[in-house]
């Protein structure tokens, strides 16, 4: 079976004047199979979010390849890249800031639908469906991001991400800004959507317990490198890498 996402030799070097270059992501590679949920854990600064930005091409790659559903997207731009976004969407860490403060939630959710050629009435109807699918009511489309709570806003962000029915969903710390009970609900929502839409998920997170509960496979990242890979239960019970051991000890 062909992987939905294949990352080869992915590297990001941040250059700055005067100071030495900083390698945020250091030649990493992994594969994500259709329907799989892959966790990516590591401390802050380990390069997890940069990986998300590189895969979605929001940041330019220094080296390496990103293959999405058999298509190399690492040198795409403009229209080609926009078409790639039909297959790949992202949920951000800060729900409220991921919506334009001057536009209603419905507008943000429907933006991709409009961009990919749906008419206004269709979009409105679809947005209402999406909101219900994500556990909100259709009238949320008329609210501004500052009027709703973080959890509600993150649900709306998830609705936006699944609007064009992508095959790959990247969750960049999507539950970190939420409190524990809401976190649980959002995780349940992800699980439900994953089944309904046959989503593959790259779940970036620093919470090992959450990853253990939700992911099929986990990658541990440290200083820009992948130091360990495996089934969450095994990685947590029998960590092979020195850093992974410390990471797990610090939590248990």
């Amino acid at each position: 079976m062909q992987p939905i996402l294949k990352v080869e030799n992915l590297t990001k070097v941040f250059k700055s004047n005067g100071r030495p270059d900083f390698t945020a992501v250091d030649h990493i590679g992994f594969e994500l199979m259709p329907g799989e949920c892959l966790g990516l854990i590591g401390e802050s600064g380990s390069g997890k979010s940069t990986v998300a930005n590189l895969i979605t091409r929001l940041t330019d790659l220094s080296a390496g390849r990103v293959v999405l559903d058999g298509q190399d997207i690492s040198s795409l731009s403009g229209r080609g890249l926009r078409d790639a976004y039909r297959k790949m969407q992202m949920v951000f860490q800060t729900p409220t800031e991921s919506f334009d403060p001057r536009r209603r939630l419905g507008d943000g959710i429907g933006e991709s639908l409009r961009n990919f050629g749906n008419c206004r009435a269709e979009v409105k109807e679809r947005v209402a469906e999406l909101l219900v699918q994500c556990g909100l009511t259709p009238d949320f489309a008329e609210h501004y991001p500052h009027q709703v709570s973080g959890g509600q806003c993150q649900r709306a962000a998830i609705a936006r991400a699944i609007a064009i029915e992508p095959r790959l969903l990247i969750c960049d710390e999507a539950t970190s800004a939420l409190d524990v009970t809401i976190q649980k609900e959002v995780i349940q929502l992800f699980g439900r959507l994953r089944e309904q839409l046959h989503l593959s998920i790259l779940f970036i997170c620093h919470d090992i317990a959450l990853v253990q509960q939700f992911c099929d496979r986990v990658l541990v990242m440290y200083k820009g490198k992948i130091v360990e890979e495996g089934v969450p239960d095994e990685v947590i019970q029998a960590p092979r890498n020195e850093y992974t051991k410390r990471l797990i000890e610090s939590i248990l």
Binding site: T56, L58, R82, Y85, R86, M88, Q89, M90, F92, E97, S98, F99, D100, P101, G108, E111, S112, N115, F116, A157, R160, I164
Partner: peptide
Amino acid sequence: YLRAARLSG
């Protein structure tokens, strides 16, 4: 939100 807009095509 601008990155989200970019992702929305």
